[in-house]
């Protein structure tokens, strides 16, 4: 009986650990290219009508209806303190699963899905940490001539320290 309960946990951890490679979705914010783990990404959608929500930090753009589920939309550029820009034809919402919640992230463009080896990842230099704001940067990956900034999407969403920046107030409770 207990085995049956444990199985799913085991499975999950095995999948995480055994792979030597990492599959990423890469996207563009302003002039920089970022990557997040594909396992976090549920889908990529066009930007539709967003309902603004008062009493929220500016980077929470509002709510959308994703097939009868209401999800919040976060503008990553505003989250990182970059200037807001007009939407273009390339602007997309990357829908991610974080801590049991589904959240949409606005990015300037989605580039590709790529597979990199863990060896390609370097730890983030001090200077870059300052740029992106905090310790959401888990590493830098060099892919051909490009530099990919790897993000820990969970940290971005649940950062408790940022003033008024708590996106989801009780990550541990749910």
């Amino acid at each position: 009986m207990a085995n049956a309960v444990l199985d799913s946990h085991q499975l999950a951890s095995e999948n995480d650990g055994a792979d030597r490679t990492l599959q990423l979705v890469s996207f563009r914010l302003a002039e920089e290219e970022y990557g997040i783990e594909i396992s976090r990404v549920r889908e990529i959608i066009l930007v539709g009508e967003i309902t603004e929500v008062p009493q929220t930090p500016p980077y929470v753009k509002g709510l959308i209806n994703l097939r009868s589920t209401v999800i919040p939309i976060v503008d990553l550029k505003l989250r990182f303190g970059l200037p807001e820009t007009e939407q273009t034809d390339d602007t997309r919402i990357v829908v991610v699963d974080v801590g049991g919640k589904t959240i949409g992230v606005i990015v300037d463009a989605v580039n590709e899905v790529l597979r990199i080896s863990r060896d390609q990842i370097a730890p983030p230099p001090q200077a870059v940490q300052g740029n992106a704001g905090d310790d959401y940067v888990t590493g830098l990956a060099k892919v051909n001539d490009r530099l990919l900034i790897l993000l820990d999407i969970e940290k971005i969403m649940f950062d408790q320290d940022q003033e008024e920046g708590v996106l989801v107030s009780e990550p541990s409770e749910s």
Partner: peptide, 16 residues
């Protein structure tokens, strides 16, 4: 709202 975000003061929820 707490399903995917968090409760917001002054709002009882959202609807489609």
């Amino acid at each position: 709202l707490a399903e995917n975000y968090r409760n917001v003061e002054g709002l009882a929820g959202a609807s489609i």
